[in-house]
Every structure is written in structure tokens, then in C-alpha cells.
Design a protein around this nucleic acid. Structure first.
Length: 162
DNA sequence: GCCAACGTTGGC
DNA sequence: GCCAACGTTGGC
């Protein structure tokens, strides 16, 4: 029996990679490279599966916000950007025979008509347990099904209001 | 730009 | 294995 679908939140600084960039990518698909944190690595390597839902979050942005969603199209595999001595994400600890860092592929699903800003998310009692709101720096974090559903409701009401 | 919170490194 | 020093993240 297949495990049920899981949900995640991926953070990115829009200055380096935004949801607009994801939409413009060929097949609207990219590899989520550059994660260099062990907890996030473990999640990417062991837990994120094809078909899982991803909340796309812009950090260090004005305003910081969940700006859309994506779908996982390839589960964890070695992050080859760690092997490239000339790249920004090079890490000598990792080599092809014994990779340290992992990535997944995600495909754009939707860009929200109205971003769900951090202050707005903080006002939702149903979201108070979100890892995002717990002072966490984790760039790849779990989202519960309840949180996922609630965020989609918020997204809907944001559209209705606009 | 500041700085609190967090993660990692490395001396011991 | 402890923990101080350092580096990074990310909200404000």
C-alpha cells in the first residue's frame, strides 16, 4: 500500500531563485540544489517522494510570503553541484562515490494570485504550529495535511477578496 | 543594516 | 563529548 501524499515547505530568496524563475524553467521543472544543512538533507534524501506537495516560500523578501505551490517530480538523488569546484555550491566533503548532499526535482503547480504573507500566516491560529512560524531556519520543512488544506483555503479567500 | 536565533567547527 | 567562537539565516 502506497504511503499517502506528504507536504513540505521550501524556502528560497527570490533574489537568487523565485517562483517566477520556476515558471520560466523548461517544463517548469528544476532541481532544488544547494541545500547544505543536514536536517534538510535528510528530509530530501529520505522523506520527500514523487507526488508530494511543496509550498514555495520567499524568504528575505518584501514581504516574505508563501507565493505558490509545486509538485515533487523526482525523489532524492545526489546534488552534483557539490562536486563542481568552480560552482557556488561546491563542497569538498562530498564526492560522487560518497555524496553528502541531496536534491529533488520540483515542477511548478501554481502561483498564488495573492501571496500569503508571513504576518498574515501568523494571524492564523490553525497554523501556529507550522515549523515556519517557530523561529526555524530550516530551508526544507514538513507541513501537515491540515496546514496544507488551511493554506489552500486562505489562498482561495485571498482571491475572492481581491 | 542590525542582530537574535540557530547550526557548525574545532580545540581541548 | 563539551562548549566557545564563528558563520549564516532571515525577520524587522
Amino acid at each position: 500500500m502506497a504511503e499517502s501524499r506528504q507536504y513540505w515547505l521550501f524556502k528560497t530568496e527570490p533574489e537568487s531563485f523565485s517562483i517566477a524563475d520556476l515558471e520560466k524553467a523548461p517544463l517548469k521543472t528544476i532541481f532544488w540544489d544547494g541545500v547544505r544543512n543536514y536536517q534538510a538533507r535528510n528530509t530530501l534524501r529520505d522523506k520527500v517522494k514523487v507526488g508530494d506537495g511543496v509550498l514555495f516560500y520567499h524568504s528575505n523578501a518584501d514581504p516574505s510570503a508563501i507565493v505558490g505551490t509545486a509538485t515533487v517530480v523526482k525523489a532524492g538523488y545526489p546534488d552534483h553541484t557539490a562536486f563542481d569546484e568552480n560552482g557556488n555550491h561546491y563542497d569538498p566533503k562530498s564526492d560522487p562515490n560518497n555524496p553528502v548532499w541531496y536534491m529533488v526535482d520540483i515542477k511548478h503547480t501554481e502561483t498564488f494570485a495573492a501571496p500569503l504573507t508571513l504576518p498574515a500566516l501568523k494571524q492564523e491560529r490553525q497554523l501556529k504550529d507550522m515549523v515556519l512560524l517557530q523561529n526555524s531556519r530550516l530551508s526544507v520543512q514538513p507541513v501537515s495535511e491540515k496546514q496544507w488544506i488551511h493554506i489552500h483555503k486562505l489562498k482561495q479567500s485571498a482571491i475572492t477578496r481581491s
